[in-house]
Simulated scan of single mutants.
Amino acid sequence: MTTPSQICDTGCGLNATLRIISGKWKPLVLFFLRDGPKRYGELKRLIQGVSDKVLIQQLKDLEADHVLARTDYKEVPPRVDYALTPLGRSLADAIVPLCTWGTENAAEMASIFAKRDALP
Rank of each mutant, 00 (worst) to 15 (best):
L33D: 03
Q57V: 06
N15C: 12
D61Q: 07
A92W: 00
W101G: 06
I20H: 01
L28A: 11
K26D: 00
I95Y: 00
F31R: 12
P77R: 12
F31H: 13
G41H: 13
R79V: 05
L68S: 02
A92T: 03
Y40S: 06
V54Q: 09
C8L: 14
S22H: 12
P120F: 08
R19C: 08
R45D: 15
T100S: 10
S90M: 10
T103F: 06
K115S: 15
A114D: 15
Q57K: 13
F31Q: 07
A92Q: 01
L98K: 00
S22W: 09
K53A: 10
P78H: 10
T71S: 12
K26T: 03
L119K: 13
W101Q: 06
V29Y: 01
T2Y: 12
A69G: 06
L14W: 10
H66M: 03
L55M: 12
A94R: 07
Q48R: 12
T71F: 14
S5D: 12
I56E: 13
E108A: 12
K26M: 01
Q57Y: 12
A69S: 11
L43E: 02
I7P: 01
I20A: 00
F31T: 04
G49D: 07
A16V: 00
F113S: 06
A106Q: 08
R34I: 01
K53L: 15
H66V: 11
A94E: 07
N105G: 07
L18D: 04
G23M: 05
Q48D: 14
L28S: 02
G23Y: 04
V80R: 06
L91N: 03
L91Y: 05
Q58G: 00
A69M: 12
A83G: 10
Y73D: 09
R39I: 14
S51N: 06
S90H: 04
K44D: 05
G36E: 14
T10A: 10
R34K: 11
T10S: 13
L43S: 04
I21N: 00
V96D: 05
T17Q: 13
E63Q: 07
Q58W: 01
G49E: 01
N105L: 02
D52W: 05
